[in-house]
Amino acid sequence: MIEKIIIAGAGGQGIMLLGKVLAEAAMQEGKFVTWLPAYGAEVRGGTAHCMVIISDRRIGSPRINQPDSLIIMNNPSLKKFKERVKNKTLLIINSSLVDKLPPKNTETLSHPFTDLAIKLGNIKVANMLALGCYFARKNIVEEKTVLKVIFEMAPADKKGLVEINQKALKEGLRLR
C-alpha cells in the first residue's frame, strides 16, 4: 500500500496541521510516513501546501509528482495542482472557496467545509472537516487513532480546542 496525498489551501487554513495529523496518525498505526512542506516565501499570505506519503514500506522520494489524493481548500490551489490530477485521483474540494469546476474524469467529493465549520462555531476547523471527509472515502487509519492524535497534538494551554476539532472530524466522516 502506498498513498500519496497533496493538501493545498491558503496560509492560515491549517493546511500544514491537517497534513501533520494525517502523518502522525499513520505513524502511530505503524506505517512509514513522510511529510514535506512547501517552505518557500509562498507560505506567508499566499497558497500553502504539504505532501504526505503513507506506505507499508520505506518511502523513496518525499516529493509527489502524481498524487493519489488531493485536498483542495481554495481556488488558487486548484489552479496550481489541477495539472497533476490523473484518472483515479481522489479530489476533495472545499466548495465554500472553490467555484471553478474540477477536472473531469476524477472522483470528486465537494463540500462547503468553511461554511460547515462556521456552523460548528469555529471557522478554523474546516481542515478537520476536510480530513474527516478524506478518511470517510479512504480508510487509511482508524477514527480512534485520529481522535487521539488531535488530543495529543493540542498544546497544553489549548486543550479547550480539542473537542471542536474532534467534532469537526466526526462531522467530516459523515460527509459523502
Binding site: 501533520k20 505513524m27 510516513v33 513522510t34 511529510w35 517552505y39 518511502i59 522520494s61 518525499p62
Partner: peptide, 10 residues
C-alpha cells in the same frame, strides 16, 4: 539538503 532538512519522518 533541503529535502532532508524539511521532511518530517518518524
Amino acid at each position: 539538503d533541503g529535502m532532508l532538512g524539511q521532511t518530517m519522518e518518524p
